[in-house]
Amino acid sequence: MRGGHSNSAIFLILVLLSAVVPVQAGTGEYSIGVIEGTPAVSYMHDYSHLDEVTFLNDEMAIRGLINGEIDFLIADHLVLADITGNFDYNEMSVLGGVGESWKAVPVVRSDSTEDYGNIELLQAVNAAIAEIYQSEEYELLYSTWFTGMSNIEESDYIASLNDGWPTASSGGRLEKILNHDKEFLACTYDQSNGLSSIDTEGKIIGFEIDLAESISKKIAEHYGSEFGFRIIENFEKNDVVNELLNEENCDFGLAGFISGEAITNGLHPGIPYYSGGMVIAASMQSPNVESISSIFEAPEFIEDVDGFDSRLILIALLAFFIVLRLRTNPI
């Protein structure tokens, strides 16, 4: 009988120990698509509990999302929100941003003794953009090229709105434009996305093109001056920088510059007009989720596997007394 009681004691101890083994409260149940060679691949390294599916290019990834091969897709906003693409964007929607975002700004060159009034012109461009934000015009321009709502916030433009319009200095670039001494020139380049691209007729089109034209109209309207305006198309972004640094070729640039990039190239940045970065998209076949954060939640445990469970002390004491009892009072 003593052996039977010993076996019973061991069995009881094992049952008690099993009560404190951590139990998973959930699992990473979603499949997330990423495009090879993009920042989304690195972003997913922190979420190994999710099923990562890699696609070779944008088209394959978007098709995979729409066809239900994956639950969600992470890619650049310029890929997933560009309604000029070859897909029916009514079949998918951008849920929101993931990771860090970036904001595109207008740029001008620095003032010099021979070439001044550029910062003044930038202030006028900023004021024009701020007024465009305040009206319904911005969302109309934005929705022509992108799905969803822009992430530009009031804090991005309120200072320029409060500062108002600059007074044109005598002999400065802004005054020369207003006095018809020169044509108002904006520089951009073909980015092959909703910001700018070349249409079937070889004409450059896009959000930046429409915005540049609206900026020109706002400036003309405010100062009561009708002047010539033209967009200079370039082959690469570096060409835009060179055009801007040549005072005769360009007055301001709308070419997807971020502030730090502009400063590095010796240019002055204005206020944001577009917010980009990685976003996550869903299709009509994607599961319903409460929030973006809920997609990435790791499996939770009822007990902390790294912590010490005080119940182990009680179990150890109980086991000790059971064994001691069996030894001192064998049956």
Results as ranks from 00 to 15, higher is better:
residue 113 T to Y: 10
residue 184 F to A: 00
residue 294 S to Y: 06
residue 135 S to P: 02
residue 37 G to N: 14
residue 193 N to C: 01
residue 58 D to S: 15
residue 62 I to A: 03
residue 56 L to P: 08
residue 250 C to H: 04
residue 67 N to P: 02
residue 165 W to S: 08
residue 104 A to F: 09
residue 319 A to G: 12
residue 3 G to N: 08
residue 185 L to K: 03
residue 196 S to L: 08
residue 234 N to M: 03
residue 20 V to G: 09
residue 18 S to D: 13
residue 44 M to R: 07
residue 79 V to C: 08
residue 276 G to A: 06
residue 255 A to N: 07
residue 303 E to H: 15
residue 190 D to L: 05
residue 135 S to L: 01
residue 61 A to V: 03
residue 33 G to V: 07
residue 302 I to N: 07
residue 14 L to N: 07
residue 40 A to S: 15
residue 63 R to C: 04
residue 96 G to A: 02
residue 178 L to M: 08
residue 43 Y to I: 09
residue 25 A to P: 00
residue 167 T to F: 07
residue 264 T to M: 14
residue 152 I to K: 10
residue 223 Y to R: 11
residue 72 F to V: 06
residue 234 N to P: 01
residue 281 A to I: 06
residue 178 L to Q: 07
residue 169 S to M: 09
residue 196 S to G: 13
residue 98 V to Q: 00
residue 209 I to D: 00
residue 160 S to A: 14
residue 63 R to D: 12
residue 156 D to G: 12
residue 216 S to E: 04
residue 185 L to I: 06
residue 137 E to M: 04
residue 135 S to F: 00
residue 292 I to L: 00
residue 121 L to S: 05
residue 257 F to R: 09
residue 184 F to P: 00
residue 122 L to P: 03
residue 132 I to N: 02
residue 143 S to M: 11
residue 233 E to A: 09
residue 204 I to E: 03
residue 196 S to K: 11
residue 86 N to T: 13
residue 125 V to N: 10
residue 142 Y to D: 00
residue 189 Y to R: 07
residue 308 F to M: 09
residue 114 E to G: 05
residue 308 F to K: 09
residue 15 V to G: 02
residue 156 D to F: 13
residue 280 I to D: 11
residue 273 Y to W: 12
residue 84 T to L: 14
residue 188 T to G: 09
residue 178 L to R: 08
residue 96 G to K: 03
residue 78 L to N: 06
residue 37 G to Y: 13
residue 275 S to Y: 14
residue 269 P to G: 14
residue 33 G to S: 09
residue 119 I to C: 10
residue 139 E to Q: 15
residue 210 D to T: 03
residue 198 I to E: 09
residue 80 L to W: 08
residue 20 V to W: 11
residue 171 G to T: 01
residue 170 S to A: 04
residue 112 S to V: 05
residue 195 L to T: 05
residue 313 I to S: 07
residue 104 A to S: 15
residue 288 N to V: 14
residue 41 V to T: 15
residue 314 L to N: 10
residue 268 H to C: 11
residue 109 R to N: 14
residue 12 L to P: 00
residue 265 N to D: 15
residue 94 V to C: 14
residue 79 V to H: 06
residue 321 F to C: 07
residue 100 E to N: 06
residue 330 P to Q: 00
residue 222 H to K: 15
residue 124 A to N: 01
residue 308 F to P: 01
residue 180 H to L: 13
residue 308 F to N: 08
residue 204 I to Q: 08
residue 94 V to W: 12
residue 30 Y to T: 02
residue 228 G to V: 10
residue 127 A to I: 10
residue 206 G to V: 10
residue 80 L to R: 07
residue 225 S to M: 09
residue 189 Y to A: 04
residue 93 S to I: 05
residue 165 W to Y: 10
residue 274 Y to M: 14
residue 69 E to W: 04
residue 100 E to P: 00
residue 51 D to H: 13
residue 29 E to T: 11
residue 327 R to F: 04
residue 324 L to A: 14
residue 101 S to P: 10
residue 280 I to A: 11
residue 99 G to M: 01
residue 107 V to P: 06
residue 133 Y to S: 02
residue 89 Y to T: 14
residue 143 S to V: 10
residue 137 E to R: 12
residue 162 N to M: 13
residue 172 G to K: 03
residue 224 G to D: 10
residue 271 I to M: 13
residue 268 H to L: 15
residue 24 Q to A: 11
residue 2 R to G: 00
residue 201 E to T: 12
residue 11 F to N: 11
residue 273 Y to H: 12
residue 244 L to A: 05
residue 189 Y to Q: 06
residue 161 L to T: 11
residue 293 S to W: 01
residue 327 R to N: 09
residue 311 R to Q: 08
